[in-house]
Design a protein around this nucleic acid. Structure first.
Lengths: 202, 202
DNA sequence: AGCGGACAAACGAACGATTGTTAACCTGTC
DNA sequence: GACAGGTTAACAATCGTTCGTTTGTCCGCT
């Protein structure tokens, strides 16, 4: 019953746990609604100890945001790789990415609140660093949409924002207890787009 | 040059202004990010003076939420009345409502942040009073969706949540300076739904 | 006509609690 | 004994809120 090396060795495993708990708290109560003391007591630390790992609350949030976006990106890219191996169509690839996106949102307990620019309100300093990460992630979907064959006059950008809205809003009403299943929801949302435009000539 | 009765007579005109400013601030910086002092100085008052009009910050927010939902409901119902006089179809009625909804969101400076449950985080007390108002508003759209003729197997509830997501997310990226126009955006979002399902047999 | 409450609406100053943050000190491990 | 990973105690600022006081205005009274 020897524990799996709980002492030292792996240097930054506590930092990960810290970001996990901070993510849950901030997703639930917002950035301003979550105090450093809340985060500290959630990991069994004292408030001051957080400042060994992070310079400030803002930099903690920055690290959290980067982590969330990176995880989401990895998840979506993995889904796309699987889709490629099955030689799926452009529409199927988009659906795979959308499903991975929504699954990520739901599993992380609605972290979209953090990924959302709205979450930041009008904080000046933070937004610049964050915008780059978000754009990189969204670029994946930009590419997926430009690979679609669409009728003339259909705005790809607006279509992408439309899809993002539908997906990102889902965690608000989504409730596993009500029988919701993220994969099914993503598929049904995508069904609207596909029914409208798939197989239509350009 | 007599002013139009600035003194007394109309008893609660200052309260309206207060809610206006509070709405702008909270939409921009969130509930926790907006202090009573922020609100007070935005209307040229001292912090304590707010408590003549409202018992607490929470009750101020409750009044604000009620006001926003009421205004949105009036706006949507007016659009539906106009649609009825023109004897429009069920799809046109839904589009009229969706357009009014989005216009309301944009014009009030993204007050969806307030109307959104996510905004409240996990505040226990407030949510109960608010949920009723939100459900009443959403009932309008519930009715609009049940009036549609849709192919079998299409989930009306999910379709409504899909539409709400797309519309409610719009204020996040919407920017008039970039040539965005709320009416056009709403119409283009609705176009996806209509292209997919309008005129299809049940 | 003029006076005196009554009352809405705000001021001014403070309260206790909580906020993010800091700095000095302890503790185990290599 | 160096150093990562904390603890402990405190700081200045800000938070929501309270309370006694002050102002301006209207209405009934003599």
């Amino acid at each position: 019953m020897t524990e799996t090396q709980p002492t030292s060795q792996t240097p930054n495993n506590r930092r990960e746990e810290l970001l996990d708990r901070a993510g849950e708290l901030m997703a639930a109560k917002g950035y301003d609604g979550t105090s450093m003391r809340d985060i500290a007591s959630a990991v069994g630390m004292l408030p001051g100890s957080l400042y060994y790992h992070f310079d400030s609350k803002e930099s903690l949030f920055l690290a959290l945001h980067q982590r969330v976006v990176t995880l989401m990106e990895a998840r979506v890219r993995a889904a796309l790789d699987a889709a490629d191996k099955a030689a799926l169509s452009a529409w199927d690839r988009l659906e795979a990415a959308a499903t991975a996106h929504l699954e990520g949102l739901i599993e992380t307990g609605n972290l979209v609140a953090i990924v959302s620019p709205e979450f930041l309100g009008e904080r000046e300093g933070i937004s610049t660093a964050i915008r780059a990460e978000r754009r990189r992630y969204e670029q994946i979907f930009r590419d997926l949409f430009s690979a679609l064959t669409l009728p003339q006059g259909v705005d790809r950008t607006l279509l992408r924002l439309h899809l993002f809205g539908a997906l990102n809003w889902a965690p608000i009403w989504f409730d596993t207890a009500k029988g919701h299943d993220s994969r099914t929801v993503a598929r049904q949302i995508m069904a609207v787009f596909r029914t409208a435009y798939e197989g239509k000539p350009a």
